[in-house]
């Protein structure tokens, strides 16, 4: 069956390592690329190389950026007293898209997971503590996932970061906006009930 030239099978196996690309898609993309005009392919290759060379992690917050510090860290109009703690750099994009948060970010780089051998030292907690001493942060908002590891990491951080004059909060979990109760699963609903708020008259 291996009638394909080696160059193509190498390309297929390289593509296959990308997230979301299975063997079938890898083969289709590879066969498409080798039959495409070579300038277009070169543009793609250059774009990949250039992006990889330019993009780095922000030394302060850990976001993906072309320059360090990143535009968010460098933006003096953003509220430096609010610091939102997220798991991965891409989570910043989700929160930014919501357009409601005007503070700064800190990327943790994961969550504590003894089963995967991820310990506090593997995360950017020391960097966070350093920032707390250097920046005028008044509130840390923890925006980690709500699975067991996310919950335990949040509890751990709440204790470890505790210091005078610093508020530590966690984003609420509950119903998805715009949907009725009938679509929420039981666990979400019971957490939403636990996290209910008094309504001001």
């Amino acid at each position: 069956m291996s009638a394909l030239p080696n160059a193509i099978t190498d390309l297929i196996s390289a593509l296959n390592r990308l997230p979301g690309v299975g063997p079938r898609s890898a083969e289709r993309i590879a066969l498409h690329l080798v039959q495409t005009d070579s300038t277009a392919v070169k543009q793609l290759a250059d774009a990949i190389l250039l992006a990889r060379e330019r993009i780095q992690f922000c030394a302060t917050c850990g976001a993906l950026t072309e320059e360090s510090p990143c535009p968010i860290c460098a933006d003096s109009r953003r509220d430096g007293s609010l610091l939102c703690l997220v798991e991965r750099a891409v989570d910043i994009l989700s929160i930014e898209r919501s357009g409601t948060f005007r503070g700064k970010f800190h990327v943790l780089g994961g969550k504590i997971s003894p089963l995967d051998g991820i310990e506090p030292e593997d995360l950017r907690i020391a960097e966070l503590e350093k920032r707390l001493t250097q920046e005028p942060v008044k509130e840390v908002i923890i925006a980690l996932s709500t699975d067991v590891e996310g919950d335990a990491t949040s509890a751990y951080l709440a204790k470890r970061l505790a210091r005078r004059g610093l508020k530590i909060s966690r984003i609420a979990y509950g119903l998805p906006a715009g949907s009725g109760l009938e679509y929420a699963d039981e666990l979400t609903l019971s957490r939403a009930l636990e996290g209910r708020r008094e309504m001001n008259q």
Binding site: I112, S113, P114, L115, E119, P120, V148, E149, D151, A152, T153, A155, Y156, K159, R160
Partner: peptide, 24 residues
């Protein structure tokens, strides 16, 4: 339980971390 057991198997489990998983 599995996470907590993995912690307990470490040579010197971090007490603060163990507490966080105990809470869960």
């Amino acid at each position: 339980v599995r996470s907590r057991n993995a912690l307990l198997r470490q040579r010197a489990p971090d007490p603060a971390l163990l507490d966080s998983f105990s809470e869960q």
